[in-house]
Each structure stands twice: as structure tokens, then as C-alpha cells.
Amino acid sequence: MSLKVTDLSIARGGVPVLEGVAFTLADGCALILRGPNGIGKTTLLRTVAGLQPPLKGAIEGAEDRIAYAAHADGLKPTLTVAENLTFWASVFGARGIDAALAAYQLEPLKDRHAGNLSAGQKRRLGLARMLVTGRPVWVMDEPTVSLDKEAVAMFADAVRGHLANGGSALIATHIDLGLDAEVLDVGPHKAKPAALDDFDGDFL
């Protein structure tokens, strides 16, 4: 089952930002979103994740299949790395966290409080959360922020593994992950400002 987005228009704070966005994300595929800052990539991802309703258009195949990773990692500083991950694992239906810890080399930090981690380590923990959700569609917003080169490679490996298992990923990022992925530039879909009508003309 693929994620299908047709003729999607979205707004941020009531102002339309993107219109006519359409793509299909088949199982085993990844799609990279690109576009300048403020174009509406985050808003698009939040809409696909179901956090906000679209102005127009349809999203199919998203219901209960999406794991969303936002700018914030949703970590609790007073819980340990293992406790944070175990919590999300049990919210999404109890899977082991060992594989996820191993994928991002977090075992040595397992019993450390998340509040004592560096920014990059926090991000790695946030990304490890995606592995314990067991959801097939990963929707990720700038996942490589504050990651070093090695951690980016770990992330790319994790995504590759996910795709090989029949999952799919929708990623907004500006760096080259070395993935065999399609690229969607949302720049051309920028919403045009509302046309002036007679009332505006009179007013001006």
C-alpha cells in the first residue's frame, strides 16, 4: 500500500503556502523534499502526518501507518535513554529496543539521563525512536540536524534497512544522504497570493 497525495493545498497560520502538491510514495521507496526555508516543508509533513487538515486535496494510505519525527525529539530529560525509548516502544505496541539502540550506537549511553546527552546524541535517540514504532511510513523533518558525519551514515543505513524491509520514507533534508531516492522540489508549488477582487481594488 503506497502513500498517495493528490492536489494538496496547505496553509500555515491561515496563509496558504503550498498548492497542487502531488506525489506517490510506494513501499520500499524514499522521497526527499527540498525547497527554500519557509516554503512550507514542515507544514507539508505535519499535514501528511495528520496533525493539521489540508485546505484542499487528499492524502491516502496515511492512516495509522505513519511515524513522524519533528524538529523536537520529544525526549524527557529526567528519564534515561532506555526509559525514553521503552516508553515510545510500548506506546506503539511493545517491540524490543535493543536493535534500535544498536543501530545508533546508543548502548553505552543506555542508562544516562536524556538531559545529559549532547545535541547530536539526543537527535540519535530521537531517530532511534522511529525504529521502535514499527510503522511503515517514516515522515521526517530535517532528521540530520546536529548529527556528525558518522551519525548521518548511521541514519542513512537505518533508512536503507527500513526501505529494504518494505517501508517507505518521506524526508525533508538539504544534505545528500546517499540514498537511492526521488527528489521533490516543492519550490514550484508555492501558493500564489490571493487575487485582488473588486473590494480590494476599491480599498486600494
Binding site: R46, A49, G50, L51, D64, Y68, A72, L75, K76, W88
Partner: peptide, 16 residues
């Protein structure tokens, strides 16, 4: 607190 650290967004997309 859950809003600030982003876990509310993540909970909203969780199966719960």
C-alpha cells in the same frame, strides 16, 4: 511540558 519538548505532537500521531 509535553508541548515544549515535542512529545505532544508525537503522541498525537501515535496509535493512542
Amino acid at each position: 511540558l509535553d508541548w515544549e519538548d515535542g512529545s505532544l505532537d508525537l503522541l498525537a500521531t501515535a496509535p493512542l
